[in-house]
Simulated scan of single mutants.
Amino acid sequence: MPVLSPEFFRRPEVLAIARELLGKVVCTEIDGELTTGRIVETEAYRHEGDPSITLHLQRKARQAQALYQPGGHAYLYTVYRVHTLFNITTHDAAHPDAVLIRAIEPLHGVEIMLRRRGLPKVARNLTAGPGVLSQALGLTPALNGELLSGPRIWIEDVGEVLADEQVIASSRVGLEYAGAEAVALPWRFRVKDSKWTSPAK
């Protein structure tokens, strides 16, 4: 399948990019092990009108330098010193916009994902959540700044286009610290009826 080019991510419309990533397939080849998953949930973060990104840039100043790259790079950072979150830079190097990948439907390399997650069998908690999907895909902060065109991380376009009625737009998760304005923004996008989306808050 064709790999999404950097130009896909270098458009200024981060909300459109977050919405259009639904149905695309994220792929990793880490230590010779291939894993893939269909993206079923994303969140958009925009430098304009989004208090959460301003606070993030202050709180994660060193790691967040990776946000100041042209669209199409991985921005990977840890929360609670445990979970790695997989974001994708968008727009250009002057605008710290990004899309957080929140959940995927596992496709290829499921046994590898189970081993990485320490799980005995396939269940929702394998990849339904930003921290667990990164673990399942083998993503760590060591890959921060990686260009998403391979050989270790890339996203394939399988030709799936979701109609508006197949997508749920709602508020983002865990942004209470950034205030009511950030919480109210309907910038979380989910595939309707997917059992692989992260728990609703």
Rank of each mutant, 00 (worst) to 15 (best):
residue 3 V to E: 06
residue 4 L to I: 12
residue 9 F to L: 06
residue 15 L to S: 08
residue 17 I to G: 11
residue 24 K to A: 02
residue 24 K to T: 04
residue 25 V to E: 08
residue 26 V to H: 07
residue 28 T to S: 09
residue 29 E to Q: 15
residue 29 E to F: 01
residue 30 I to D: 11
residue 32 G to D: 14
residue 36 T to C: 14
residue 39 I to N: 08
residue 41 E to A: 00
residue 43 E to L: 09
residue 45 Y to G: 05
residue 47 H to W: 11
residue 47 H to R: 14
residue 49 G to C: 07
residue 49 G to I: 09
residue 50 D to N: 01
residue 52 S to N: 03
residue 55 L to G: 14
residue 55 L to W: 06
residue 55 L to F: 08
residue 56 H to Y: 15
residue 57 L to N: 05
residue 60 K to P: 06
residue 61 A to I: 03
residue 61 A to K: 14
residue 64 A to N: 14
residue 65 Q to H: 07
residue 67 L to H: 10
residue 68 Y to H: 12
residue 69 Q to N: 10
residue 71 G to P: 15
residue 71 G to L: 07
residue 72 G to M: 10
residue 74 A to S: 04
residue 78 T to W: 02
residue 78 T to D: 04
residue 82 V to P: 03
residue 82 V to A: 07
residue 83 H to T: 09
residue 83 H to V: 08
residue 83 H to A: 12
residue 85 L to E: 08
residue 85 L to H: 00
residue 85 L to M: 10
residue 86 F to N: 12
residue 86 F to Y: 08
residue 92 D to N: 15
residue 94 A to P: 02
residue 101 I to V: 13
residue 102 R to D: 13
residue 105 E to V: 05
residue 107 L to I: 14
residue 109 G to Y: 02
residue 109 G to P: 10
residue 109 G to R: 01
residue 110 V to H: 00
residue 110 V to D: 04
residue 113 M to T: 15
residue 116 R to A: 01
residue 117 R to T: 07
residue 118 G to R: 14
residue 119 L to V: 06
residue 121 K to N: 09
residue 122 V to E: 03
residue 123 A to M: 14
residue 127 T to V: 13
residue 127 T to S: 07
residue 130 P to G: 08
residue 130 P to N: 10
residue 131 G to S: 14
residue 131 G to K: 01
residue 135 Q to N: 03
residue 136 A to W: 00
residue 136 A to F: 00
residue 136 A to C: 15
residue 136 A to S: 12
residue 142 A to P: 08
residue 143 L to N: 01
residue 143 L to E: 03
residue 144 N to C: 14
residue 146 E to N: 11
residue 148 L to E: 11
residue 148 L to D: 08
residue 150 G to T: 01
residue 153 I to P: 05
residue 155 I to T: 01
residue 157 D to F: 06
residue 158 V to A: 05
residue 158 V to F: 04
residue 158 V to M: 12
residue 166 Q to N: 11
residue 167 V to A: 13
residue 168 I to A: 06
residue 169 A to Y: 06
residue 169 A to C: 11
residue 173 V to P: 00
residue 174 G to P: 02
residue 175 L to N: 02
residue 175 L to D: 13
residue 179 G to K: 03
residue 180 A to S: 12
residue 181 E to K: 05
residue 183 V to E: 15
residue 183 V to A: 13
residue 186 P to I: 01
residue 189 F to W: 12
residue 190 R to M: 05
residue 192 K to C: 07
residue 192 K to I: 00
residue 192 K to Y: 09
residue 193 D to A: 10
residue 194 S to F: 01
residue 195 K to G: 14
residue 195 K to L: 15
residue 197 T to N: 06
residue 197 T to K: 01
residue 198 S to F: 02
residue 200 A to C: 02
residue 200 A to S: 15
residue 201 K to F: 09
